[in-house]
């Protein structure tokens, strides 16, 4: 199949950036979206032009590196799917496809489709952990965890930190990302001692990093490649209220 790509090109943080059109030809429907970009990039390099910069690593939907808006949707049209797992069989001959970076104040563009998501790391650094030093642990089975809680904790822990939730949100809020971590640890006995402190510090860092506030549009859940539920946000709000009341 042949496609027209309209790709955001921006040479660096200072550049204004613009959409550039590219014709891609003879695309095999078994290719992944990123493999299609590889093909285009190879052509660009052969012509001595700079290829389109995009983040990627595992290409298995788990590392959270890949991050691009495809036709205005984070990671593209398939639900529960990262850009690297999106396959060209989803498109048809003659399609015109827009490819752009995440847009959020807290995620400044580095180049083309590559953005700086280190704000997410700083949120975790402010409290997204259990404070246990290496060597201090008791026997793993000394602390049984109800299977349903363990499963629910897992569902929240499945977050890959890609930032699609922020990119999808009209306010560029990081609520789903923060809530996923707060809930993962909040649902486990190990997470209890720091539960109140954790939610307070993570929310405060989220605010200082320049993420917007949540107005319950739930675009985040729809965009999340790991289908993390917005019920985590409700849970986090409860934790936040309670911890603010000081008990």
């Amino acid at each position: 199949m042949n496609l027209t790509l309209k790709v955001w090109r921006q040479s660096g943080p200072q550049d204004k950036g613009k959409i550039v059109d590219y014709a891609v030809k003879d695309i095999n429907s078994h290719m992944s979206f990123l493999e299609m970009l590889d093909v285009l990039n190879e052509e660009l390099i052969a012509k001595g032009e700079e290829p389109i910069a995009f983040d990627h690593d595992c290409r298995e939907g788990i590392c959270g590196s890949c991050s691009m808006m495809i036709d205005g949707i984070p990671h593209g049209p398939d639900r529960g799917t990262t850009a690297c797992q999106l396959h060209m069989r989803r498109f048809k001959d003659g399609d015109v496809v827009y490819v752009e970076p995440w847009q959020a104040k807290a995620f400044p563009v580095i180049k083309d489709l590559v953005v700086d998501r280190s704000a997410f790391d700083r949120i975790i650094q402010s409290g997204g952990f259990v404070s246990i030093n290496t060597g201090n642990a008791q026997d793993a089975n000394a602390l049984p965890v109800n299977k349903d809680s363990a499963e629910a904790a897992f569902d929240a822990a499945a977050c890959i930190g890609c930032g699609a939730c922020v990119a999808a949100c009209p306010n560029a809020s990081a609520m789903l990302f923060v809530a996923a971590k707060v809930s993962h640890l909040g649902k486990l006995p190990q997470g209890q001692p720091e539960r109140a402190k954790r939610v307070q510090s993570m929310v405060s860092t989220m605010d200082t990093e320049g993420f917007g506030s949540c107005t319950n549009t739930f675009e985040c859940e729809a965009a999340c490649p790991k289908e993390i539920s917005v019920t985590n946000i409700a849970q986090m709000n409860r934790d936040y209220m309670q911890s603010s009341l000081g008990d």
Binding site: A137, A140, P144, V145, K147, A153, H184, Q190
Partner: peptide
């Protein structure tokens, strides 16, 4: 064996049986 203990203490959500054990 220490690794499993350490990871559980960090909150790694390993699979569990109905009895709540790993």
């Amino acid at each position: 064996n220490n690794i499993i203990d350490q990871c559980v203490a960090q909150g790694v959500p390993f699979a569990r049986d109905y009895g709540g054990l790993l």
